[in-house]
Each structure stands twice: as C-alpha cells, then as structure tokens.
Design a protein around this nucleic acid. Structure first.
Length: 479
RNA sequence: GCCCCCAUCGUCUAGUGGCCUAGGACACAUCCCUUUCACGGAUGCGACGGGGAUUCGACUUCCCCUGGGGGUACCA
C-alpha cells in the first residue's frame, strides 16, 4: 500500500515552527516512499479559526518548499462525514448522550482534585434510561456525545519513533466527548471534536502514517479506540520530539519569534530554515552532513533516525546555516534577495551590475539578509561620516599628501580597474616613502570614514564607478 | 495529583556490548591567512545525571532513583 501522510494544522495562528517541522518530516517521509502528502486545515474550532491564518499556513509551507499533493481540505466543509460517524457510533451503542452541564463537570473535577484524585468524567450518564434522558431534555438541557471507554482496556501501539507505547483505558479521563452540544434548535448534536474529526478524516483520506508532535501522544490512545469503534484499520503512528525554547519548554507563541513569517522577516532564507528544522531531531545516515537540501534529505529520510528527546531551538546554529547558504549563493540570485533590504535601509541604485558587485563584496560577511543594510552602508551616499579613529589617522603627518596623490591619480584614470588601483597604491607608497599598510589604512579612512570594512580595493572600485571616490577624498582633505 | 514520554559536551547530535583515550557541528578561546572587518583554515575548551543488576567487558541491555518534558477540555 502506498504511503499517504498529512499535515493537519489548525488555523488559529500563523504557521508555527513546530507545525512547519512536522510538515517537513511528513513531506520527507512521503517523498522518500513515493507517497502522497496532504494538507488538511482543522478548523472545527469556529471560535478561534481565521481565514488569514489558513492563508499564512499555505504561503509559509510554499515558501519553505513544502508542496502538497492533495488539499487543502477543510474540516468545516466535511461536517456531514463526522455527523455520519457519530451517528454510527450512537446507533451501535458505542456512544451516548451526556446531559451534564459545564458547571456540574467542573464541580465534579474540583471535588476529585480536592481529594487528590485524577480529574475525570465519572461516566455518570452512560446508562441513562430513555425517561431520564427525556427529563433532562425537557428541562432544557442540551447533550454532548461521549464515546464509551472501557476502563479495563489496554491500548498498545508500535510507535515508529518510540517503540511500544502502552496506555490504560482508565487513564483516559473517562468517556470522551466527541461532539459538542448543538448550536441550533432541532439538531441532534453539535460540532465534532478534534479526536473524532481527525480519525474520520484520516480514515477518509486513507492516511497510512500519522506523523505528529509528541504532544499528541495521549490523543493516540483515544483515537485508536475511535478507529476500533468505527471498525477501521488503524494507521501507523510516529511521535516526533518537540521543539523546545531556551527554558526547555514546548515552544509556544508566547516565546516571541516562533512563526515562519517572523524568521522570514529576520532575513533567513527558506533553504536554511528547512535545513535547520530537518536537522532539529533528525540526522543524515552520515551524521556529519549538516548542510543539505530538502531533496537530499528526502533521499535519505527515515523515522528510525528521528531522535526521541526534545530539541532546544538554537538561533546561533540557524544563523550559521543561513550564512552558509548566503555565502554559497550566486550573486545574481542573492542580489534579488538583498534589494528589498537595501531599499528598506534607504539605499537605492538602478545599476544592477553595480549591485551584483556590491553583493559579491559583502556576501562573506552576511549572516542574515538584513545584514545587507549595515554592511553596505559605507558604499552608498556621497558624504562620509568619519569615525574618531579615521579622523586621527587622516590627520597624521603626511596622510593628506597621500590622499592628494590618490586624487590626482584617479583623475588620470577614467575607468579604474583592480590592477590600476593597486598600481596607484604602490606608486604612493614609493613616492611618499611609507609602508604600504599605512597607505591602505589611510585610503580606507579617507574613502570609507572607518578603519574596518570589506575589501578596500573592491570597495574603492565600486565607489569609483559612481565617482564617489573623488568626492569623498575631497571631503577627507578638508578635515 | 495521576498517566505517558525522554535523559551523551552550554546547544544540536554520532554512538545499537569491545572499533570510545566517546566522534562531528554551532557557540566560545587562541593561532594562521589578510591593509582592516569578515570569510576560510588549524588548534583548544568541553559530556555519557546517580545507584544497582546482567556480562569477561557497558555510553550502549534491565531495574530503581533523580531530573526534565508532554498530557490530563464541549482547544487543536
């Protein structure tokens, strides 16, 4: 049977990094086995679901390079399916109506907690007579639907990353709610609940492997019971470790930057993001290989090599991976990614060739795309702000003569090349009888206003193309 | 509280009984390269949570403890 997996996010927020990583694992698994990867939007929580989040999830996945073969499917459009399943369960006597009010349930749990017992539903309405049910209904109460859970049952499954996992029926918290109270008059029951909808959908979509975060591990036991109730074949399960924050807790929205959007805006490229997320909890058969594309990962992916323990999110490693991608990216491609950041910083040029050269110059010093602004600052604009150290150097004995000499030499060469630039520096070195290093440093100070920065010759050539070198040296001479 | 899961350098990890004097990567430090800053290269720093058991031999198997995490909804 061919592999079918899915990612089933709920649109209650922007695409979260944890969801994205689960999506990547699923996608990798599907690609590895020549299967299908399906996108399903779990929007049964009408209160919290929003369309813009649905869009954000899709654009985020696409940005990362995760494409889906089927979907997106929306649970909100599949309510009939769930309704039928609930009815079937009801008809078979596997589920029943519970008329408890939220207040009653709360009171019950409080009592349990007070006597140090695990809070759970005590199945009090499991065996209500027809008369009792009618009495509740007559009193205006609306029922939820609960699935009967056999307290004596042992639920066991072979988890593809964790091995055998066992759960007792009695630890499931009592008969579980599978449908809310009806919202409209005359309805038999209301919206289906997560566990029910998931099972019905996974069944309907013929999902073979459920790969999801470890936080779903307790749901698996409940869902297995649902599969059985519906007389269906149970899929394979694989529970992946969670992505943790610095404190070692499950990464949540409250931890600040956790949505894919955030990382995109911070200047991370999708290839690096995907690479890092895949690396977080999974290793190549050759574990020393850390920089790889999704396609390369797909060729080698296996759940066996997924780690069991949670992994702390480490931004500095992400930074390093991102820098690797930025450094090896062709300038012709990188320049397009950089332009928006230059524009944002207020640096503009229509000269694409010049921008490509600039890109080549600063690429090695980029960690994130947003570094392009600060790293290029000295190359844009006519006037220069001289740093303290640069001023001091420029005021040193003989330095003004050097600058003057360079100015004159520049004027003699209409289109400066690297060879010529070097020749000019050598010439000044000779005529002024100083060390070459001093000429270089002084020239940097005069041209850039600072003592540190990208390669001097290349920077100079870029300025020269715009005639900025003459203007700046002029300014340096007035200090 | 109860249930489940997990446990190797600060972080991500390799390791499936002897190949381990525990390997790699990030971070950090030093050095080299270099006009500077980066990049790149080299070196260093640095871990098997504790206790039992099995075994000729445990990072690797089992048990207990400890620690951490997840779950415990008419959320997903």
């Amino acid at each position: 049977m061919s592999v079918r997996v899915r990612i089933a996010p709920s649109p209650t927020g922007n695409l979260h990094i944890g969801t994205a990583r689960t999506a990547i694992f699923n996608w990798l698994f599907a690609r590895r086995h020549g299967g299908k990867f399906i996108l399903r939007i779990e929007d049964t929580d009408v209160e919290r679901s929003r369309v813009e989040y649905t869009e954000n999830i899709q654009s985020g996945l696409t940005w990362l390079g995760i494409n889906w073969d089927e979907g997106p499917f929306f649970q909100s459009q599949r309510l009939d399916l769930y309704r039928a399943a609930i009815q079937k369960l009801l008809a078979q006597g596997l589920a029943y109506r519970c008329y408890c009010t939220p207040e009653e349930l709360e009171q019950m749990r409080d009592g349990q907690k007070a006597s140090n017992q695990a809070p759970r539903y005590d199945n009090r309405h499991r065996n209500l007579t027809r008369e009792q049910q009618e009495a509740f209904a007559a009193a205006g109460r609306q029922p939820v639907i609960r699935l009967k859970i056999d307290e004596l049952r042992e639920i066991v499954w072979q988890d593809l990353v964790r091995g055998e996992v066992t759960w007792k029926g009695s630890d499931l918290g009592g008969d579980m709610v599978i449908a809310r109270t009806p919202e409209k008059e005359g309805e038999e029951f209301g919206q289906p609940l997560y566990n029910l909808a998931v099972v019905v959908d996974d069944l309907d979509m013929a999902i073979t492997h459920v790969i999801r975060g470890e936080d779903h591990i307790a749901n698996t036991a409940k869902q297995i019971l649902l599969y059985e109730g519906l007389g269906a074949k149970i899929p394979e399960f694989a529970h992946t470790p969670l992505i943790l924050n610095q404190a070692g807790r499950k990464l949540s929205k409250r931890d600040g930057v956790t949505s894919i959007d955030d990382f995109k805006q911070m200047g991370f490229v999708p290839e690096a993001m995907a690479n890092y997320m895949a690396l977080l909890g999974w290793t190549q058969p050759d574990s020393t290989q850390e920089i790889f594309s999704l396609a390369e990962a797909a060729a080698n992916f296996s759940l066996e090599r997924v780690n069991k323990a949670g992994a702390k999110f480490d931004i500095s490693k992400l930074d390093w991976i991102n820098s690797q991608y930025l450094h090896q990216m062709p300038a012709e491609k990188l320049v397009d990614l950089l332009i928006p950041y230059w524009e944002e910083a207020g640096y503009h040029s229509d000269d694409r060739l010049w921008l490509i050269q600039l890109t080549q110059l600063i690429a090695p010093s980029l960690t994130r795309l947003q570094d392009a602004g600060p790293e290029s600052r000295l190359l844009f604009g006519e006037s220069v702000t001289y740093s303290e150290e640069a001023r001091d150097l420029l005021k040193q004995e003989g330095v003004q003569e050097m600058m003057q000499g360079v100015r004159e030499a520049i004027a003699a060469w209409p289109n400066l090349t690297e060879t010529e630039a070097k020749k000019i520096i050598d010439q000044i070195t000779k005529t002024q009888k100083v060390k070459k290093g001093l000429v270089m440093r002084s020239l940097r100070a005069g041209l850039m206003g600072e003592l540190h920065g990208p390669d001097l010759i290349q920077s100079w050539l870029l300025l020269n193309q715009k005639g900025l070198d003459l203007i700046r040296l002029q300014q340096a001479l007035t200090l």
